[in-house]
Design a protein around this nucleic acid. Sequence first.
DNA 1: ACCATTTTTTGGAGCGCTCCAAGAATTTTA
DNA 2: TAAAATTCTTGGAGCGCTCCAAAAAATGGT
Lengths: 349, 349
Amino acid sequence: MPTLADVGKAAGVSRGTVSNVFNRPELVRPELRERVEAAARALGFGGPDPKGRLLRHGKFNAIGFMPPGAYAISEVMRSPYGRELVLGVSLACDEAGTTLSLVNGTDDTRFASIRDALVDGFILGHSADIGLIISVQRRRLPFVILESDAGPDINSIKIDGWSGAVAAVRHLTGLGHRHFAILSVRRTPGPPIVHMPGQATRPLLAGFPLDDERLDGFKQGLAEANLSIEDVPIIETIPGEPSAGAVVFDRAPEATAILTMSDWQAITILDEAVRRGIDVPGHVSVVGFDGTAESARTTPPMTTVAQDVIGKGRLAARMVLDNEAPRQVVLPVELVVRASTAGPRAKVR
Amino acid sequence: MPTLADVGKAAGVSRGTVSNVFNRPELVRPELRERVEAAARALGFGGPDPKGRLLRHGKFNAIGFMPPGAYAISEVMRSPYGRELVLGVSLACDEAGTTLSLVNGTDDTRFASIRDALVDGFILGHSADIGLIISVQRRRLPFVILESDAGPDINSIKIDGWSGAVAAVRHLTGLGHRHFAILSVRRTPGPPIVHMPGQATRPLLAGFPLDDERLDGFKQGLAEANLSIEDVPIIETIPGEPSAGAVVFDRAPEATAILTMSDWQAITILDEAVRRGIDVPGHVSVVGFDGTAESARTTPPMTTVAQDVIGKGRLAARMVLDNEAPRQVVLPVELVVRASTAGPRAKVR
DNA sequence: ACCATTTTTTGGAGCGCTCCAAGAATTTTA
DNA sequence: TAAAATTCTTGGAGCGCTCCAAAAAATGGT
């Protein structure tokens, strides 16, 4: 690949002049400019290499998005929540004219990815572990972490998942439900895990603040109706697991109300219900989480704990773009009642 | 920001040694290593700056995605088609461990964006104009252009939109439809444009191969049933225009079948139909285009000209990642008949 | 024709890093 | 204990560019 200097030599001018031809053409005499351009063409020089410029200037003009947990970016793009989040981030990037880098990295390459990412700041998806945070801090770039409060020095944005979970249960108990099942998230690869009541004590806390907080909210809501979460089957599946709905119906057939951690999971259940001829909400009520656009389009339209995912993504991007003093933002949630929930009826299954 | 040299000076070693401490720690004596690490910590040195490394090595390890036409990346993320396309691209990026840069650029900054993008290759969304192509070629990076054949030297991937359009019309005429409306795409900002039959001759070709090809397919399909596209109202709206459905029903009330250019547009029509109490497919049949996941979830599930959008995105990414000899790929489409189309009935509107 | 301006062009400095051949220090061997 | 072998450390070269002060060339006025 030819360089500025090569072109300069060929055209009989200095590399500074060649640089000017490409960056401030008005500074160089038309005939000379032409000569340089001809030389560049002849050499197949495609303009100043951004690498050199970059080293000189130091700004990448890009922010990086690191997928939640150990997920790949394609997994983010697959989930309704992830898509809306990225959409929100991209909105802020559009406004700022910034590139959005979806940074990849498997478990073992994540740290290297962060170390090498050509970005001016980071958004870390939820469930970022401490190692990841340290990696980012090391680079002294502005960053924000989603769905986990990492202390007062660190930008974070999370929703009030606890209240959302409580509200979901209250809605259902208010409708008269007494038999629940919870579809939770498995954060490691593998088949669904089923925690049945009475079985050896299961850990309520999975170690992921995002999920634990919601489980705790469910517990609280149930307790308010004199129900114990200990009596509720909890199924954990990785997001997008197509068998999730089937497992829930198979293992918790007596449940009249199913609580989930995401719209995506709830959609799985709705799909499986159609497949089995189970009427929602006639036989079973289902509540989603996130309030993504998809939740309004399901059949029936879904009751869900809604948050402003797009707004969250946008705010996150703004925070790293503006690089203000660290703050911890907690966003509200709102239970949106649609048609996937109703009072329990005689069970005909 | 301290540099390797600064740390070296502080620790009393050369910058080469500091580099080794960070990149090949096994090469440096433990006690020295520790000393250097201490100095780095004291100075707040966050590891070697990727800019320097980049200049030395020269690989960005990223591919760039340039949104179609003059759209912003948030607009891509908003459309069902765009999301699936990006998902496909991200799939290939995951496999290759590459970063996916969603490159931004308004009309006037697009060229600069391409010039400066820190990527090893480009995917240009459809409707890329010649200027954009030239900009990318100048950088001598591998690239692929979507939905427009730019000649034998240029990688391109497109679907057989013409056949898809013909199939859609044949399906509808086979069902007995004689009164059509076409919802086409306006590629410039602005309100819907309505071309009514008989009005001053309207250009069938909008100058965007993607759209023109489909319009031509519609024309062919209609001709096969002794119908002329000249008698069909054509409405052009920008993607995502919420009033699109309303305009179609207002301006083409006699149509019993509506052809569209995307699922997204078709969804708009379905939504408006619900709003107006128009039964689909009882009163009106609607055909989408693209066959995105969303099209299967509408009410009623949509008949659509399906393509493998994810596969297309993935193939595109592979082509730039693998940098093979240029080729022009034409992908097949398939009419997926679902429940948004049926024979025309007595019109009760 | 000469000097003062103005317009163009130049090339050194430096951005921060990694590579690598060579030098220095340490350990092993005879 | 000296030479040989091994392990560590060094600093020059170079990646490609932009900035900028200064030199060179062109222009204008008298």
